[in-house]
Write a protein that binds this DNA or RNA. Structure first.
Lengths: 251, 251
DNA sequence: CCGCCTCATGCAGGAAACTGCCCGAATATG
DNA sequence: CATATTCGGGCAGTTTCCTGCATGAGGCGG
């Protein structure tokens, strides 16, 4: 591996990801961080990138939609979203919960076949405006502004009328004994109801949600079809969940 | 997550929402509030934002609305929106149609008293996320993507259950003889139904819509409470509408 | 072949940056 | 006025950065 070659690759990484982290690049090349840092320093002096603490950023701030897309989604959430979207088959009806985690699914939805998305989140439905093949069913009701989803009796009634093939549930906490929970009572009730109406229910779980509990119980682990977790999560942490009867899907 | 990256994202959030709250940003990034506060302090020192208790605000009081940008709201629409919003009284229930004209009302809604907004447009409801006093009822149904409103039988049923004090109707064409019309048949049906369920119906009309006709009839002029037009429109053009029995409200 | 030079690399140690926690003060809220 | 947040500064632990130095691999002339 030649030095200049390595620097070209670093620039590629920068273009692709919008950032480079000295530590992870060093790991990737199996070199010391010092070497990478030297590279970054040098390239910064040549005006090829902008050096920042921890790594480097491109000189041009980013593509316009890149920043909005990036705002909330971590790499982990992105991989979960892509995996979940990959589970969808032509013609299926999918219920998408509200929240940033499930919103990530929308950005990876297939565009080469037709399916139906049901959601009680105006935010989610808004993101689907320009999707070419998705039929969208919006569930109405009283809008709970904190998480921007429709709630109340009318939402429950409307949900009862659909039978989704898959429900992608979003929660704030997952625990081996206490199951899935969230912060608002009304929301928890709605989520539970959707799960009951759906053939399968999957939960996207970022690592920091594991082994935590929120005030309002949604459903137990045995009631769902599986947890979707990032491949980077160690098996050790997932063991209690397997024991509790939950299927684990790793991205 | 690099520190400098986080700060640019905070600026994005600021542009998008017009404010940032230290606590919620901290949650979003999974970092302590201290760190976010430090960021805000630092950026404030750099003159990138204005630090306030609880979070930060953009320096320029309100740059030409981020949300407005995509709709290119003219001065005319803005004045119509402000006038319509001024008609709302405390405790009333208001039905907002979809479309860019009625969206302009949202931006001028009073913030010093409570009222209820009913809408079948996820876009409209999305804009109300940060409104402090508005209770929002979302009407669900099959999403008609072209104009981003819920349609279909279930929407009709849901609409029947409310009785708004005022319906702000949006149409594409207004004509003295042919009344109000729009481009889609299903949408026209929905609009007619909402008008029937409402105590009063007002239509915001920009000048270029006058004396035009679209394919699908909504209601006749006699069925509505009044047209809202900009003060700049000459009385001469409005005469036929007065003759047809329509009340005219000038901004 | 040998000595010398250059250069990339890794390592050590001190400096700087980042982050979380804590506490007394300042600020909202009712 | 009482209470709850939020703020700012200070402290400690960790990470990242930079400088200087040693090593080792090549290149080159003698």
């Amino acid at each position: 591996m030649l030095t200049s070659q390595r620097q070209t690759i670093i620039l590629d990484l920068l273009r692709r990801d919008g950032q480079v982290v000295a530590k992870s690049v060093a790991e990737e090349f199996n070199l010391s961080e010092d070497t990478i840092r030297r590279d970054l320093r040098e390239m910064s002096a040549q005006g090829l990138l902008k050096r920042v603490h921890g790594g480097a950023l491109p000189l041009s701030p980013d593509l316009p939609d890149f920043s909005t897309r990036r705002t909330v989604s971590s790499e982990e959430k992105r991989s979960l979203g892509a995996y979940a979207a990959g589970m969808i088959r032509p013609g299926q009806t999918i219920f998408l919960d509200g929240g940033t985690t499930t919103a990530e699914i929308v950005r990876h939805l297939p565009r080469d076949f037709a399916f139906t998305i049901v959601t009680h989140s105006p935010t989610i439905s808004g993101e689907l405006e320009h999707h070419p093949t998705a039929e969208v069913i919006l569930i109405g009701g009283r809008l709970y502004k904190h998480s921007m989803v429709a709630t109340g009796a009318s939402a429950i009634v409307a949900i009862s009328l659909v039978r989704p093939d898959i429900f992608f549930l979003g929660v704030t906490a997952v625990h081996p004994a206490h199951g899935l929970s969230t912060g608002d009572f009304e929301e928890a009730t709605i989520k539970r109801h959707i799960a009951q109406c759906s053939v399968e229910t999957y939960v996207m779980v970022t690592e920091e949600k594991l082994d935590t509990v929120s005030p309002c119980h949604v459903v137990s682990l045995s009631a769902i079809s599986g947890l979707i977790v990032a491949a980077s999560v160690p098996d050790e942490r997932l063991k209690p969940y397997r024991s509790a009867g939950a299927a684990i899907l790793k991205t």
